[in-house]
């Protein structure tokens, strides 16, 4: 072999191929380091079972949109899990920065956006695994979709949306903090944003300050999107176009913000 000067003959790497290469690594690491992925799987299951069991009685409140508490809390568990899938990749990016593996990626001519799209693809795969595990488990525990496959679809779309938002947020913070302090901030903020919504109660049954906050929190729209195929058909939150686009818009808006936040952080890594 010789190292003749042929750099120019090497094609500029494309975004999608580089991103797929990075995603491949991320997916392989799920298998090789299951302990890092386990919490993202266990947490939604725990949330679903514990919340549905503890707060089972809230379905007896007049106006509650479903009589099955698992129907209400499974989407919450999945959204939490999806958020942690995205954040988990923020964690591993911090680890890569700390071990300087990230320098290797930064020094390659791979388009910068592939460094974000790669982990994004990984996050989506993690969400797919999560849904494939948690939804059947929920159904065993009594979850019933009230609008068939469409309900399943909107739930998965919401989960993918949450993971996209949290990935952007996680990467953005990883690029700025560059150490494990960033991990604490990621978790804390995602946690608080998800909780300050209709996480536990539907809007009409809330009161006071939380009602005001949840009403304008985009996470409420996303949860509505996730739950619309699981509530009673006579509920205003049931599957409808207006409930769908509200959620999609919230996802698009928040994902754009966090992904831009991530990209700007990436561009400033050499400062």
């Amino acid at each position: 072999m010789s190292t003749q000067q042929n750099a120019a003959s090497v094609a500029m790497p494309t975004t999608m191929r580089s991103a797929r290469g990075l995603a491949h690594r991320g997916i392989r690491n799920i298998r090789r380091l299951p302990s890092a992925f386990f919490p993202a799987m266990a947490m939604p299951v725990f949330t679903m079972i514990a919340f549905a069991g503890t707060f089972a009685a809230i379905t007896r409140l007049p106006g509650f949109p479903t009589d099955r508490s698992v129907n209400w809390f499974m989407p919450l568990g999945i959204c939490f899990g999806a958020a942690f899938s995205g954040i988990g990749l923020g964690f591993s990016t911090i680890r890569d920065i700390e071990t300087r593996f990230y320098d290797r990626l930064l020094m390659s001519p791979a388009p910068r956006r592939s460094l974000i799209i790669g982990p994004l693809l990984t996050a989506w795969v993690r969400v797919a695994i999560l849904c494939a595990f948690v939804i059947p488990m929920g159904m065993l525990l009594g979850v019933r979709f009230t609008s068939g496959l469409l309900g399943l679809l909107t739930l998965v779309v919401a989960a993918i949306g949450v993971s996209t938002i949290s990935l952007g947020w996680g990467l953005g913070l990883a690029y700025r903090f560059r150490d494990m302090r960033g991990a604490a901030v990621m978790q804390l903020t995602m946690f608080v944003v998800l909780y300050l919504s209709t996480a536990q109660m539907p809007l009409p049954l809330m009161s006071g300050w939380l009602h005001d906050v949840a009403r304008i929190n985009p996470a409420t729209n996303i949860l509505r999107l996730a739950r619309q195929g699981l509530v009673r058909p006579d509920s205003p939150d049931y599957m409808s176009w207006s409930n769908t686009w509200g959620g999609l818009l919230a996802i698009a808006g928040m994902a754009t913000l966090t992904l831009v936040f991530a990209r700007r952080g990436l561009d400033k890594l050499d400062r």
């Binding site: 191929r17 690594r25 593996f101 791979a110």
Partner: peptide, 19 residues
């Protein structure tokens, strides 16, 4: 280098990133 990857996998990833 990522300790979870094999030598071949790392080389392939590098090859992809360099087009």
């Amino acid at each position: 280098i990522d300790p979870l990857m094999t030598g071949t996998e790392l080389l392939r990833l590098q090859a992809v990133l360099y087009g």
